[in-house]
Design a protein around this nucleic acid. Structure first.
Lengths: 308, 308
DNA sequence: ACCGGCCATACGCTGAGCGTATGGCCCCAC
DNA sequence: GTGGGGCCATACGCTCAGCGTATGGCCGGT
């Protein structure tokens, strides 16, 4: 209806009019809109001036609809009822499905998210998370999820992307292992045990290479098929693992892991939280994105002395 | 529908959504609202974020409604159609009756308004004026008119009031009379003729008294039953009349009347334009009020040297 | 007579909504 | 294959529509 916008002074004036007519007073309508009584008074006066007629008569008891006001109120009431019904149906469908699907790595979920999941659900009581878990390196399409963590640039293109954490790698081990075996670049009587993630598609040499020192002794290694298990083994004192900060920041902050070397690898790339454009970008998705970012920033700030 | 305002991010978003759905593009909807394309794009995105779903899919060809979008568009279209029908009926009724009823004095209409009526109708081509004419002193209820001139404070209470002109009285006569007979306080061989308005309710002595000088000679007087006629007689050189500036400002400006005395009576009161609250205060009523005020201020400015 | 509650209006403040600039993408004509 | 046109999306900065506060006027109840 192209004409409707031209017939009223502002889009909101009909909402205000309907509320004032239903409530019978400016004050009551104002409370409903969380504004003050003069605001409603002006809005109604503006609508009446625009239309060139009185919609209400005023008395100390409040507002009484005129004949024209009653005619308009019936039409507006019916029109709004039709629209509200459709909107309510849409919102109800959304509310039933307050499922939010996330695509994260096992390590991130196990060692970063689950420790704070209680606080998450306290902050988001109506959300029901579903995780698509990636065993190790975050890659692959994430299609039908609300939010995913991936590296940028990557193969997923038709999506929103927000930077989340830098790709920063530090060798980590348990405090006991460090005490007993020394750091990665120090000599020790027995070779270090390197805890590896078995990923034929990942060139881990580009990470280990810069981390070895000139006197780094020969080492043994153990490979696991899931990076979350790699991190767990490091926590258990079984060796030294590559620690992607985005996954181990919580453990570093808690002290269950410590740096096993003074060296770091900063790739210059960054993990991003991403949302496909084929899904609606919901308010709750944005709120979760923000929550995750705030938490990650807090973690990184807490362990910044370890990463310098 | 209290809930509708809470279901949408802003009142205008549904208007914008409907236009975009109907037009099939942000650009076309933007042109309809006299805004730019980014404004519509943001408004739609905000509505989608608020509702937590996509209403349109985007392509280079414009916007295509999703299933939810189509459901909402049907409901909004029907709702708006219902409202617009009622509004259009109200506006049509108002447009047919573009009659504006005015309650003014005969003198004001005859000697002030009619000289500028051509310019008035050029400025208000769709207005059809109806005058309630008051023979002399502006008083009495004016009930069912759009705009009235009255003195404040007065007996009409339930109305809007805007100050229009001060009550300033100057004796006036034609230039020829002044040349032949001298001013009111000067002596002359024959007594002055005072032109009076016969109003038993009006105490004219309070006006004539301050205007007579200590050497004002005895005079004869002629009384008329209509003040417009009194002013006309003064213009015709038949004597000296009390000149209420609000009625004679045009004639003083044109030179068809001149002051017959250097004395003035300023009562401190003021004429007001008034609109009853029992009638709708229309935009056009306000526009006429403003037009009249601008014209009166211009007249008073033009003759200010005569009134000092 | 006073108080409470209604609506109306003037004044000053501010953030929602805007335009501009720009980027990305797709389609079509040459 | 390339360039231009037209679509939508987003960042940045600006401004005035809409707001709150203060206040006034009025009416009804105590």
């Amino acid at each position: 209806m192209a004409g409707l916008g031209r017939l009223i002074p502002s889009a909101r004036s009909l909402l205000v009019f309907e509320a004032a007519a239903r409530c019978g007073s400016c004050g009551a309508a104002a409370r409903e809109f969380n504004v003050t009584q003069p605001s409603v008074s002006r809005s109604i006066a503006q609508l009446e001036t625009h239309l060139g007629l009185l919609l209400f008569t005023r008395s100390v008891r409040g507002l009484v609809l005129t004949e024209e006001g009653q005619a308009l109120y019936r039409a507006v009431g019916e029109g709004f009822e039709r629209i509200e019904g459709a909107l309510a149906a849409i919102v109800a469908a959304r509310t039933r499905k307050e499922v939010v699907e996330l695509s994260f790595s096992t390590a991130f979920v196990t060692h970063w998210f689950i420790p704070r999941m209680q606080r998450f659900y306290r902050d988001f009581p109506t959300v029901d998370l579903r995780f698509q878990l990636i065993s190790g390196t975050l890659r692959g399409p994430f299609g039908n999820v609300d939010l995913a963590m991936r590296m940028q640039p990557g193969e997923n293109t038709d999506c929103h992307a927000w930077e989340f954490a830098p790709e920063l790698v530090v060798p980590v081990c348990s405090p006991a292992y460090l005490r007993d075996n020394g750091s990665l670049e120090e000599g020790c009587e027995t070779p270090h045990t390197l805890l590896l993630f078995a990923d034929p598609l990942q060139d881990f040499a580009r990470y280990w290479g810069p981390l070895r020192g000139p006197r780094t002794p020969a080492s043994t290694s153990v490979a696991f098929s899931d990076y979350a298990v790699v991190v767990q083994a490091a926590m258990n004192g079984q060796g030294i693992a590559l620690g992607w900060v985005s996954a181990v920041s919580h453990a570093l902050g808690q002290g269950t892991l410590v740096p096993a070397s003074s060296r770091r690898v900063a790739t210059g790339r960054a993990y991003h939280l991403m949302a496909p454009r084929t899904r609606p970008l919901k308010d709750v998705t944005l709120a979760i994105r923000d929550w995750l970012s705030v938490e990650m920033q807090a973690d990184i700030a807490r362990i910044s002395h370890l990463l310098a």
